[in-house]
Design a protein around this nucleic acid. Structure first.
Length: 305
RNA sequence: GGCAUCGUAGCUCAGAUGGUAGAGCAGAGGACUGAAAAUCCUUGUGUCACUGGUUCGAUUCCGGUCGAUGCCA
């Protein structure tokens, strides 16, 4: 017999800009639903980064089972393809125990990978990327543009051509797969064995910015400076190209004063929150709430049944 | 008190030998399928401190006022 649609378990997606208060809402919600939490914060994956990523506290982590938190080292290479696969596997396990699972985080692309799916792409050979970076360093963006125009004229027409990261990604796929990047991008929603409800937390801009400033000060008091100093020798790692760390590295370099670095952290966090909102606003499925509306959120989820 | 310099976009500052002005940053908007807390794009009208004068025309020149800074007393 074909299962009724409502027999499918429910994945509750909770997103929103940084510092909006996702963690505490998520924990209360998870308790109320007996759900486990999957993190979708691409920097909370790394165990070396705790204070600067506003990682949930030990009490918070022990009050509800969490997954995909500090499970990686900053030395590991990770990407959304792996994340999608691993989260789907984890959800299979969670849904054996519970009708609900909660995925919480601010990394829109990672959430998209779980909900919508990503197209299958060849595993990337790191040497290709290294070579492309080298080419970019030596000959500039034009060299990448020229290459892409030949290998994938269709994508060349639509990409933001001044964006080296995007050009390099497209090129590495073209080179390692032997076919055009655009031909692999199907963008078809993947089949999922669960239903999805998307919730977003938001606050008026001013209030959010106030919270960001306050949280930055809290991080400094909690010892972010020491955490960053310990990671300073590893600053070249991608995971450390992160707000809260890169500014302090500049301070260690003697480029800026400590107060200036702290101001930069606040500012760059605001920029980040703004980009998150731009991404999330685009998704019409997200139902928006303020972090205080926990009861309304709970009611909405129950109405899904 | 005297002398000097300065007062231009939220901030830091450019600039026009007189024809009402422009950058960086901030702010705002946007893009983004394996680096995503990353990366990239778009967006600048403001009594040019105030007030008289010269001039067809002044924010630009001259005088005064106020404010800031520095030096001298």
């Amino acid at each position: 017999m074909i299962p009724m649609i409502t027999d499918l378990p429910l994945l509750v997606v909770l997103s929103g800009p940084t510092a909006v208060g996702k963690t505490s809402v998520a924990i209360q919600l998870a308790k109320a639903l007996s759900a486990e939490i999957i993190s979708a914060d691409s920097r909370q994956f790394f165990r070396e980064m705790t204070i600067g990523t506003a990682c949930p506290s030990l009490e918070q982590l022990s009050s509800v089972p969490h997954h995909f938190i500090q499970q990686l080292s900053i030395h590991d290479n990770y990407n959304i393809g792996l994340y999608e696969k691993e989260v789907l596997a984890k959800l299979d396990v969670i849904f054996q125990k519970s009708r609900y699972a909660l995925i919480v985080g601010g990394s829109g692309l990672y959430i998209r990978a779980v909900c919508h799916g990503t197209d299958l792409m060849p595993d990337n050979d790191p040497t290709i990327r290294t070579e492309l970076k080298l080419l970019f360093g030596k000959e500039g963006i034009q060299a990448l543009q020229k290459k892409l125009k030949v290998l994938d004229p269709e994508y060349y027409e639509k990409v933001d051509r001044d964006n080296p990261v995007r050009l390099i990604r497209a090129l590495e796929v073209c080179i390692s797969s032997g076919s055009a990047y655009s031909s692999l991008r199907k963008n078809k929603p993947a089949a999922r064995k669960f239903r999805i409800i998307k919730l977003g937390l938001t606050l008026p801009r001013e209030e959010l910015y106030r919270r960001i400033n306050f949280r930055t000060e809290e991080m400094m008091e909690a010892g972010l400076l020491d955490e960053a100093r310990g990671l300073y020798p590893l600053r070249h790692l991608n995971a450390l190209n992160t707000v809260g760390y890169k500014e302090l590295f500049q301070y260690f370099d003697g480029e800026i004063s400590l107060p200036a670095a702290i101001e930069m952290i606040k500012q760059n966090t605001r920029h980040y929150a703004k980009r998150q909102m731009t991404w999330m606003r685009k998704d019409p499925q997200i139902k928006w709430f303020s972090p205080e509306q926990k009861a309304d959120i709970f009611k909405l989820i129950k109405n899904e049944e």
